[in-house]
Amino acid sequence: MATRRPPRVAVWKFASCDGCQLTLLDCEDELLAVADAVEIANFREASRAVVEGPYDLSLVEGSITTAEDARRIREVRAQSRFLVTIGACATAGGIQALRNFADVEEYRRVVYARPEYITTLASSTAIREHVAVDFELRGCPIDKSQLLEVISAFLVDRVPNVPTESVCIECKRRGNVCVVVAHGAPCLGPVTQTGCGAICPAFHRGCYGCFGPMDSPNTAALIPLLEHTGMTPAAVRRFFSTFNAAAPAFRAATESVAEASSPP
């Protein structure tokens, strides 16, 4: 059997904080195995040496917030056999998608000393809104073992084993005590996709929804519960409006809660 050249992997950055790419470098124990299994051909956070495409697998971090990036992602797609998004920015637009519900012009005027230097789109959008995506890995940031699972799945052309169930099931498998039931804490776990290992509830905090909506989120049933824990409607809106604010189910949840009436 002829030896095949190892699959060529590229890592791309769009509007993001680099935390998800860093997860690949954080695979300390497994990094050598990854390097044996694939050729890391284009990963600027790790090396300046770039091997030209095409690539077998592109890992894409970040959202599309500029016209230039909207063009660049099409180039990435064109030279990639598989394209996998990594993280909340690439998958749902990220925290920067809060601009989608606000006036970007006003932000530009208020935030920047020289607003004319800033060229940006009015929205922050997920990669799938621009090009075809083969798989979306959730998380802010992504989970290391899920990333390894996705890489190893694409190496052998199989579907990644990445559950889309709630955080609650992972919480229970881990033996955590439910922070909602035992402490009255607000928690997005029942509507959020698992993958983090239920870290926050293990440390007595409610889930912040870093992995975005689970496959069948009943946010309408969760909202009264959040309000019951003492959250104001404005707080509930903010709770759904973080890293996955523009994920359709979370956005719909935010919009379903009436704005608190503004003081006269």
Binding site: E30, A33, V34, D36, A37, L148, E149, I151, S152, L155, V156, N161, E165, S166, C168, I169, K172, R173, C178, G189, P190, V191, S216, N218, A220, A221, L222
Partner: peptide, 28 residues
């Protein structure tokens, strides 16, 4: 309409036994 499908009832139930199996391969 009230159910979150969060699985908590089945996880805490002493008799619920449903499980799944998965193959976890190494990278090589």
């Amino acid at each position: 309409r009230r159910c979150l499908s969060c699985t908590n009832c089945t996880m805490v139930c002493p008799t619920c036994f449903c499980h799944t199996t998965e193959e976890v391969p190494d990278l090589g």
